[in-house]
């Protein structure tokens, strides 16, 4: 990767809410596993049941976390956009994606190669601490939102409208 590309990636990482505030040395290291990529509408960032071999920081566009149910078709569970992250199944064995993530509007993202990213985190406990703290915050927010979704708060009390 050219010095220019690395500098560009570091700038983008500095601006992304997930990596904002990381020490520059940590950002430099992360670029070893990162590339800047564009994804067209209709393509998948992750496919349910397949290898979760990438982690994404979204810069532009919109993607949807989806689940396919044979009798109900595709259920769109959540949308993600600029400033969001996609994927955490790459962190834990068996590294398999739990949902489909489909691009709705052209996505520009910093894409991390999961195997390389894991190695970087294994080798550098300080980087791992920064990274995992942010990831836990994201997971906590998602769990929180999912709980609210589960309540089905717009339903009529005592039955469905």
């Amino acid at each position: 990767m050219s010095a220019e590309t690395v500098a560009d990636l570091v700038t983008r990482l500095e601006q992304h809410p997930f990596t904002q505030g990381f020490p520059t040395s940590a950002l430099d290291k992360l670029t070893q596993a990162a590339t800047l990529q564009t994804f067209q509408p209709g393509t998948f960032l992750l496919r349910e049941g397949r290898d979760a071999d990438h982690f994404y920081l979204l810069l532009q566009g919109q993607a949807a976390i989806e689940l396919y149910l044979p009798e109900r078709g595709v259920i769109r569970l959540q949308t993600v956009g600029p400033g969001d992250v996609v994927g955490w199944s790459w962190l834990l064995p068996p590294y398999r994606a739990a949902f489909d993530v489909t691009v709705i509007n052209t996505v520009q993202a910093i894409t991390f190669d999961a195997a390389r990213l894991r190695r970087l985190l294994d080798d550098d406990p300080t980087l791992a601490a920064h990274f995992l703290r942010r990831l836990v915050a994201v997971i906590a927010q998602r769990v929180h939102a999912t709980r609210l979704q589960l309540i089905d708060m717009y339903a009529v009390k005592g039955g469905r409208p």
Binding site: V74, T79, A145, L148, Q149
Partner: peptide, 16 residues
């Protein structure tokens, strides 16, 4: 709270 493929807007609770 829940969309399908025909919905191109945001999906998630209002706080999101």
């Amino acid at each position: 709270d829940r969309g399908d493929r025909t919905w191109h807007g945001h999906v998630g609770v209002v706080t999101t």
